[in-house]
Nucleic acid binder design. Sequence first.
RNA 1: GGAGAGGUGUCCGAGUGGUUUAAGGAGCUAGUCUUGAAAACUAGUGAUACGGCAACGUACCAAGAGUUCGAAUCUCUUCCUCUCCGCCA
Length: 423
Amino acid sequence: MLDIRIIRENPQRVKDAMKARNKDMDALVEELLAIDVKRREITQVTEQKRAEQNSVSKRIPQIKKEGGDTSEIMAEMKRLSDEIKEGNAQLSQLEERQQSILLSMPNLPHESVPIGKDESENVEVRKWGTPREFDFEPLPHWDLGANLGILDPETAAKVTGARFHFLKGLGARLERSIISFYLDTHTENGYTEVFPPFMVNRASMTGTGQLPKFEEDAFKLKEPDYFLIPTAEVPVTNMHRDEILEGAKLPVKYCAYSACFRAEAGSAGRDTRGLIRQHQFNKVELVKFAKPEESYQELEELTNDAERVLQLLGLPYRVVALSTGDMGFSSAKTYDIEVWLPSYNRYCEISSCSNFEDFQSRRAAIRFKNDIKDKPQLVHTLNGSGVAIGRTVAAILENFQNADGSITVPEVLRKYMGCDVIS
RNA sequence: GGAGAGGUGUCCGAGUGGUUUAAGGAGCUAGUCUUGAAAACUAGUGAUACGGCAACGUACCAAGAGUUCGAAUCUCUUCCUCUCCGCCA
């Protein structure tokens, strides 16, 4: 959520930023400005009346005690009370409208973000590794998985439906090994491991920006009003909702494994085969709470921390800076890490690392103060996949396949897998 | 799921409609006393939000709604905690 003060003081900057995101919100910005003026005006008048009501109310018991007649004052107070109620009603209407507009507005992109209409204008920042030249015809991971008997979407379709998988045997073990390897790597690197709930309430989904705008993307329980998490970002960031953190303890760094659930609304027909786009997938997520002046340095480090696991696995990847037109709703700046997938013959997103600045922390009221006497200020929140598990499995199967259909297990996973080859 | 008890400030805890600007205590801060410390005494003490240039005002007693001139206190809804029972991993 944007700060109403930024809109009040620099509406043009906000309008321009929305246009860079392909959204014309000029009319909404103007409406916000009008609401803001009116809101403050009514607040002042109503609070003044409230002050009078408080002071008169204090005198009433004294007058009664002295045997005075209060009926005239009571009648006057009744009128005042009605006026206050009317003022409050107007205020809550204005506040509700203001809030609903603010909740619908995406974050302002950081000045370093490339301006662009969509993903075609993302900027490649760096590349690591070299895509392998095969001396045989490489298979896509869904064929490799089926041939090895480790990937079984058909049974999942019977048991549940489309876009789910059973992993079997060494496939299931590979999934589990990657989770452990990622968590071990990140905890050695200073992240505190947490295991979060996989369902969250509405306040948490609103805090990180999934609601109210993107409700149709989430799986929702009928009763109670809970959502299946689309990413561990939601429960982990909301751990500190409505809290004031100690400045000396920042940055706070968490890593968390979770299953992730996405309805994938609007993506029918895309990536229908294999592990790339599922309704349920596993992911290890990195989450940071940082001081504002350090958050962009922290974003670079978080991205590097995510890259490290791919380097250790030996998977070629590249890092791209998303353009204004391709960035997510809540993000001020995002790097995507894309792993090389032979079957796609291109790099494919496996991690998305973002600085949300104070966009989430304002919604979720996550603050800090350096000293006990300071005024609390909003932290900057960051997160990134470190990294997606299912897509890692796909990348390992495809990049490390052998001519006989077997898969060479990356060195770092062997102690988890208990074998060198999947065959 | 059933029955019961609760949720008040940093903490403990009083408070069933108005002299409560939330009693009292603990803790914390400063001072007095003391060679120093402890004790005692005195004073201070909201890690909150909004409006206002400011003085200040307003809100906030789990959350939300209601009754009333006036609500921590009465009514309704929700959430959470604890105890017992049931069920379960």
